[in-house]
């Protein structure tokens, strides 16, 4: 069973855009960056031009604590891409600031993963891009 279920090589990597670059630049520096509306203070992810609550722009980039819980997860046994060694865990992480992102939960026997478990971000250097992934914490 693969406990480190996030390959650093070969997986399809994001191509940052002008809009999303601060998120990926932050990850390279070991910081989990998310947008926040300067008017209504809503956290915004995935990156957008304007706040979906009040349409204000520009949005500010702020650093998340990277702490959260597993909102939902799936253990994938039939990967869509050969770089992923099954089984591995794709999950929605609920960050403590109140926003959500898709990621992988790594370093854990997939059979022991459950909704609600506490996780924290760590950064996986994939060459051109660094990906924020999550690991369970006690």
């Amino acid at each position: 069973m693969s406990y480190v279920s996030a390959p650093a090589e070969g997986r399809p990597l994001p191509v940052p855009t002008e809009l999303s670059a601060p998120h990926w630049d932050g990850a390279r520096e070991g910081r989990l960056m998310v947008q926040q509306c300067p008017v209504c203070e809503a956290y915004v992810f995935i990156p957008r031009r304007a706040c979906p609550q009040c349409l204000a722009e520009p949005l500010e980039w702020v650093e998340s604590s990277g702490k959260g819980t597993i909102y939902s997860y799936t253990i994938i046994h039939r990967p869509p891409h050969p770089a992923f060694e099954p089984p591995f865990c794709a999950a929605i992480i609920a960050l403590e600031e109140g926003w959500h992102m898709l990621s992988n939960v790594v370093g854990t026997d997939p059979a022991t993963i459950a909704v609600g478990q506490a996780v924290a971000v760590e950064f996986l250097d994939c060459g051109e891009v660094t990906l924020p992934v999550f690991r369970r914490v006690n």
Partner: peptide
């Protein structure tokens, strides 16, 4: 193929 989807094996 979205940049916040495909990289997680979704």
């Amino acid at each position: 193929e979205n940049e916040f989807v495909a990289c997680w094996g979704m």
